[in-house]
Design a protein around this nucleic acid. Structure first.
Lengths: 177, 177
DNA sequence: ATCCGGGTTGAATAAATATTCATTCCGGCA
DNA sequence: TGCCGGAATGAATATTTATTCAACCCGGAT
């Protein structure tokens, strides 16, 4: 038995729209709750949803979570919690790496240019680490990096001069240039 | 009945060290496998581990995953997969809604061009998957792709315009362009 | 030596979660 | 109008995952 037809009274909305709205707002509520508190399982979440007026079964909730791509993870205290997929806008910023720059000085060996490509050679194993730091700076001059073990390929934006690129790289790899 | 005492023969290691090493290398293997391929459930992971010589039960695997904080999530294609916490893909966010443009849906975040190179940024961990899809299309316009964790470098054939490349990419990444 | 405690594990089981199946509610179309 | 198809949903069920319990191994303290 569905309750939708009783829940939405606005005469200007078709029932389909009402149901959509119902589901959508439920999904919103789920996101809200999951991000606001530690939810360990679906029953718990069901209870929270009930508090806000959403009546649904575990089956539906499971489908909702799948649609929202909510994941079940373990927090620092070994407790299971649901987490939202991270928005790319809030990507993690490297903290510890950037400070220990003297390591990088030893890590990077050379930078060479060809066309719109720069190739950075590093000590074996250091490439992804350094590339990670470069990425986190989000320089407009660099479209992206791709790291192997001891080599980074760095794509420069159109029209960027090697000298400019070197200046940017110097922020990550002191001693370069 | 445990098999540890039969498994490790090196006389220079104490049994405790052996067991630690065993578990540690097993955890390493788990991280490796989980980051390299799409694992949907623990049985699947058990089979992969068996291929590499690790014998353990689902109970132990469950504990390992909890310790590693591996999360079960849903990928862009609605399939359940395990993801490592190291990737910032899953973390707690409080304010932001899931800005799910269709780009985002497919795991791709942006496409930029420079000269004969296109750089595709993706959600962490999605690059090789998307690159794989691009490769499978065997577009004449693309000479090849190279994928890292969240970046794809795509080499365009001579004379191919960004607009053309975008049209091709749109076949793989709905919403591009 | 003997006990105690912490850590690891498997088997069995409990708990949690996903899916199947059936139903309802439309909207579109012949 | 009546029929078809798709979306949403709940109940029941299947599947998956976590935990309980007992056993074992060791190291250190008594």
């Amino acid at each position: 038995m569905h309750t939708d037809k009783n829940v939405y009274l606005c005469p200007r909305e078709t029932k389909i729209e009402s149901r959509m709205k119902n589901k959508d707002s439920r999904l919103e509520a789920i996101k809200m709750i999951v991000s606001a508190q530690d939810i360990s399982n679906q029953e718990e979440l069901l209870r929270e949803l009930a508090k806000v007026g959403f009546r649904l079964t575990q089956a539906t909730l499971s489908r909702d979570l799948k649609q929202l791509k909510v994941a079940k993870a373990t927090n620092a205290f070994g407790k299971y919690i649901y987490v939202l997929p991270a928005s790319p806008l809030y990507r993690r910023v490297s903290d510890s790496h950037l400070t220990s720059s003297s390591l990088h000085q030893a890590g990077a060996l050379s930078v060479k240019f060809s066309g719109n490509i720069a190739v950075v050679h590093t000590l074996p194993g250091h490439a992804s680490h350094i590339a990670y730091d470069i990425d986190n700076k989000r320089f407009e001059e660099f479209l992206g990096t791709l790291a192997g073990d001891d080599t980074i390929i760095l794509v420069l934006a159109d029209g960027v001069m090697p000298a400019t690129a070197l200046r940017r790289l110097a922020e990550v790899i002191p001693g370069v240039g």
